[in-house]
Design a protein around this nucleic acid. Structure first.
Length: 283
DNA sequence: AATCTTGTCAACCGCGTCCCA
DNA sequence: ATGGGACGCGGTTGACAAGAT
């Protein structure tokens, strides 16, 4: 690594060339913004020097792309965005940059942080690997359907005028009616293609993925059998948080609306989902 | 009120890929 | 063909804030 700031014994000349690290100051931000406004982005190492920034080009690029760029969207991820992240992650894995290309205004860093802090947290609470098939199935069967329901609810009350998230909602409203639910889905990849994953979620659309431009995929994950129905859970989504409790906790729950099960590995119906409430608050 | 724990997110780091001389 | 610089990506770290004890 090139020089690091705050080193004790450096000559004045070295100090002159010392590269700064850590949080950016307002002055640095201003310098970078003004320089890019006048000269455009790219050639980051040269840019850093010419702009008078004591930063690496790499640091300048990161600061611009993740924070200063004008079209960066701030604030919590919408249910649409969360759902899209889940779907695209199930399709592409940790290809954050690729996923971010489909979420205008969101950065790969933001999506990555979302996944690590919110999604992986749930895996820890379930005591399963976040990259395991089990967890992916849980995401498809519980989380994604609930987000779809949330999207449907919000779209009903949405002002018809375009909004920053209209990229997604427009796709949703234009989507065809999903096929009848299948009782037997033999492969996880089939799940993704069907879009509504576990059947019966009254989704307003097919998978968001199917609405996106075709991009070459990695091979499908290992096959996994799902079939009949044997348990249900109450799902509550509130202010960006999901709480999944056993249906017994919620007398008014309509089990027919949430009927994903599996028999081969019946983990959700007992050990994990009943003993450990799947608390998705903050998601 | 003080301390500890947990969550969030900006930033850094290492590595792989691309491009050009 | 290849070596080096620039760039981009994904993983990780660390500072700070918020919540819990």
């Amino acid at each position: 690594m090139a020089g690091v700031a705050n080193s004790a014994s450096i000559s004045p000349n070295e100090e002159e060339n010392e590269l700064r690290k850590g949080p950016w100051t307002l002055d640095e931000d201003t310098l970078l913004i003004h320089y890019i406004e006048n000269h455009g982005e790219g050639h980051w190492n040269a840019l850093a020097k010419c702009a008078g920034l004591k930063r690496t080009g790499k640091s300048c690029r990161l600061r611009w792309l993740n924070y200063l760029k004008p079209d960066i969207k701030r604030g919590n991820l919408t249910p649409q965005e969360q759902l899209l992240i889940l779907e695209l992650h199930s399709k592409w894995g940790n290809r954050w940059s690729k996923i971010a290309q489909h979420l205008p205004g969101r950065t790969d860093n933001e999506i990555k942080n979302y996944w690590r802090t919110r999604v992986q947290k749930q895996a820890r609470q379930l005591n399963i690997e976040s990259n395991s098939q089990r967890f992916l199935d849980a995401v498809r069967c519980f989380w994604m359907p609930t987000l779809r329901q949330k999207m449907e609810q919000t779209s009903l009350s949405l002002d018809p005028s375009p909004s920053p998230s209209s990229y997604l909602t427009s796709h949703i409203s234009a989507a065809p009616t999903p096929p009848p639910p299948s009782k037997m889905v033999s492969h996880v990849s089939d799940y993704s293609l069907i879009g509504n994953s576990c059947p019966s979620h009254n989704s307003p659309s097919e998978s968001l993925i199917s609405q996106l431009p075709q991009i070459p995929e990695q091979p499908a994950s290992s096959s996994y059998a799902f079939e009949a129905l044997n348990d249900s859970y109450y799902v509550d989504y509130d202010m960006g948080g999901l709480v999944l409790d056993p249906v017994s906790e919620m007398a008014s729950f309509d089990a027919s609306q949430f009927d994903c099960q599996m028999t081969e590995s019946d983990w959700m119906s007992n050990n994990y989902m009943t003993d450990t409430l799947w608390n998705m608050q903050g998601m």
